[in-house]
Amino acid sequence: MTAPFPTRKQEDWRYADLEALQPVWEQFAEPLTLIVGPGETFEEVWLPTADDVQVRRIQLALGAGAKARIFALNTAPVYGRVELDISLAEGADFELYGANIGTGLSTNEIVTTVKHVGVGGRSRQVIRSVLNGKATGSYLGKVEVARGAQQTDAEQSIKAMLLDRGATANAKPELEIFADDVKCAHGATVGELDAMQLFYAESRGLDPAGARALLLEGFIMGLWDSASDCGAIAEAARAALQRVV
């Protein structure tokens, strides 16, 4: 039986493009479950496809001391959703580096729940959004630290760049902590390109579009630095940026 179709009243679907999701819901109704065994390492690079609607729903359980690192470029022409539900056992380590790059009327969102269940887990989520036109880019990220998950170290860094007045960025980091010896940091900024940086680049000979592209590249590209092979995602991100500049 297919899971019920979500409604906007559900917090983690409130910015979703449900109309775009409806026709393809059956394919995505059940999240994919993955398990990374104790001490094992998992790394994936999620590249965009050519589909109008691109959805990934993953449940990922990290065993004790397991490490997972995900690089995600979310840039669907209509609706893109990267949904991750992660649980971390003792000493597990999770990193997500994600970008929403949106143009036109598109909606791209990254929705995560990171559950620190064991002691000494570490999670780090770095999300960057670049949006133009009337595009929406969202990050909804809940970090749950269970009772007893002491020495948890969780970090969320969310930054968005709006290139047009009609573009929207939503950033909602959320913490639910039931342990008393933890470190949970989060920061969110929404801004525009810096006028002085643009002028500096233009004074060196870059035309306005080239200057914007270069600054945005600097804003996004640092995300992929730690990937074992960042070639494909860097290239896809560059192509996506060219569409929004």
């Binding site: 000979g205 870059l206 080239g210 600054l215 590249e217 600097g218």
Partner: peptide
């Protein structure tokens, strides 16, 4: 300009 190397900046300029 964080994230943009001098070499890339100057070459593109």
């Amino acid at each position: 300009i964080p994230g943009v190397s001098y070499l890339q900046f100057l070459r593109e300029s």
